[in-house]
Computed example of a mutant assay.
Amino acid sequence: MESRPLIAVTLGDPSGIGPEIIAKALPARVQDFCRPLVIGDAACVQRHLDRYYPNIKIHTVTQPKEAHFVAGHLNVLDCAHVPADLPMAQATAAGGRAAVAVIRKAVDLALAGEVHAITTAPINKEAIHLAGHPYPGHTEMLADFTHTQHVALMLAGGNLRVVLATTHVPLEEVKALITKERVETILRVTHKWLTQIGIDRPHIAVTGLNPHCGDGGVFGDEEAMAIVPALDSVRADGIDVSGPHSADALFGRIHHTPTDAVVTMYHDQGMIPIKMASMGSAVNITLGLPILRTSVDHGTAYDIAGQGIASADSLVEAMRMAATLSSPAHAAS
Rank of each mutant, 00 (worst) to 15 (best):
A323F: 01
S314K: 04
S327H: 12
T300E: 02
S311K: 10
H298K: 07
D303L: 07
D313N: 15
T300N: 06
A323D: 03
A323S: 12
L325H: 02
G308N: 00
A301M: 05
M321R: 14
S311I: 02
L325D: 04
Q307P: 13
L325K: 04
T300F: 00
A312F: 14
S314T: 12
A318D: 03
L325V: 06
A305V: 02
A310L: 07
T324V: 15
L315C: 04
A318I: 13
R320V: 10
G308T: 03
S314Q: 06
V296G: 09
R320T: 11
D297Q: 08
I309D: 00
T294V: 13
Y302D: 06
S314H: 07
I309G: 00
S326P: 05
Q307K: 14
Q307T: 10
H298R: 08
A322R: 03
V296F: 12
L325A: 07
I304Y: 11
M321K: 14
Q307R: 14
D297P: 06
H298S: 08
T300H: 00
M321H: 14
D297Y: 13
A323N: 05
A323C: 09
S327Q: 12
A310N: 07
S314I: 04
A312T: 07
S295H: 11
V296E: 06
S295P: 10
G306R: 02
S295E: 03
A310D: 03
G308V: 02
S314A: 12
D313L: 14
I309K: 01
S326Q: 11
L325F: 01
V316H: 02
D303F: 12
S327R: 08
M321G: 06
S327W: 03
V316K: 06
I304K: 00
H298D: 03
Y302K: 12
T300G: 05
L315M: 10
A312R: 07
T294K: 01
M321N: 10
D313Y: 15
I304S: 02
D313G: 13
T294E: 00
R320A: 10
S326I: 13
G306D: 01
R320N: 12
V296C: 11
A310V: 08
T300D: 01
S326C: 10
H298T: 06
V296I: 12
A310Y: 12
A322T: 14
A305P: 09
V296L: 11
A301R: 02
R320P: 09
S326D: 11
A323T: 13
A312P: 15
A322G: 06
S311R: 09
A318S: 14
V296R: 07
M319E: 06
A310T: 09
A310E: 03
L325S: 05
S295G: 09
Q307G: 06
S326W: 02
I304H: 03
L315T: 00
G308K: 00
G299F: 13
Y302T: 07
D297E: 09
S295C: 10
I304V: 11
L315E: 03
V316W: 00
H298C: 05
A322M: 05
G308F: 00
S314P: 12
A310C: 04
A301N: 06
G306K: 01
L325G: 04
T300Q: 03
S327F: 05
S314D: 07
D303I: 14
